[in-house]
């Protein structure tokens, strides 16, 4: 879905401008944008092609984040090929085959800010500081996952091909 740029929302509420702004190249609400040593997070089409960090993502760490219900929270809403975790949710698509359906860049944008693609999605934006009010004190000003954690999860999801029911990294 194409989103409108900030020039089309000028004059509306600040939150709207911020929301639209993040969908272009840079926005302060992206957690990575505070790191001035790195280039800003760039969305190209429906993807973020460039990794957020210099350290390649680790699929094993990514799998652990996905499985952790207090960290990645993923299995609350998604089923996935992580058989030792019972009680997986079904609000979102099954993560099996995610690496066949999407490129790493597409997975990255869906994790960093899926609401850039679909503002009504229930999927939280994992690596932007959500503009919603009443953020709990423990979470204020923080993204759900840090940049390296995003890279780890992207690396794990990329291993989930349609021809593998079980992700390789345990």
């Amino acid at each position: 879905m194409r989103r409108t740029g900030p020039h089309e929302t000028a004059g509306k509420a600040t939150r709207l401008v911020l929301t639209a702004g993040c969908l272009l190249a840079v926005d302060a609400s992206f957690a990575g944008a505070t790191d001035t040593r790195r280039p800003p997070i760039a969305i190209v089409g429906d993807a973020i092609p460039a990794p957020l960090t210099d350290t390649p993502g680790d699929p094993a760490r990514g799998r652990a984040i996905v499985a952790d219900r207090t960290r990645g929270l993923c299995l609350l809403c998604h089923a996935g090929p992580i058989p030792e975790e019972r009680f997986q949710g079904d609000l979102g698509p099954d993560l099996s085959g995610a690496g066949s359906r999407h490129t790493a860049g597409q997975l990255r944008l869906r994790l960093v800010d899926g609401r850039a693609l679909n503002p009504d999605t229930i999927m939280p934006s994992y690596h932007r500081v959500d503009p919603s009010p009443r953020v709990g004190a423990a979470w204020r000003g923080k993204p759900v996952l840090e940049a390296q954690e995003i890279e780890d999860v992207v690396a794990y999801l990329a291993t989930l091909r349609d021809d593998t029911r079980e992700g390789p990294a345990r």
Binding site: L73, L91, R115, I122, P124, S125, D130, P131, S132, P133, R134, V135, G136, W139, R140, K142, V144
Partner: peptide, 17 residues
């Protein structure tokens, strides 16, 4: 209203899902 770090609302679960 979407609230909190996860940007969820009551309606997102209890109306829509």
């Amino acid at each position: 209203e979407r609230i909190g770090q996860l940007g969820l609302s009551c309606a997102a679960c209890h109306d829509d899902n």
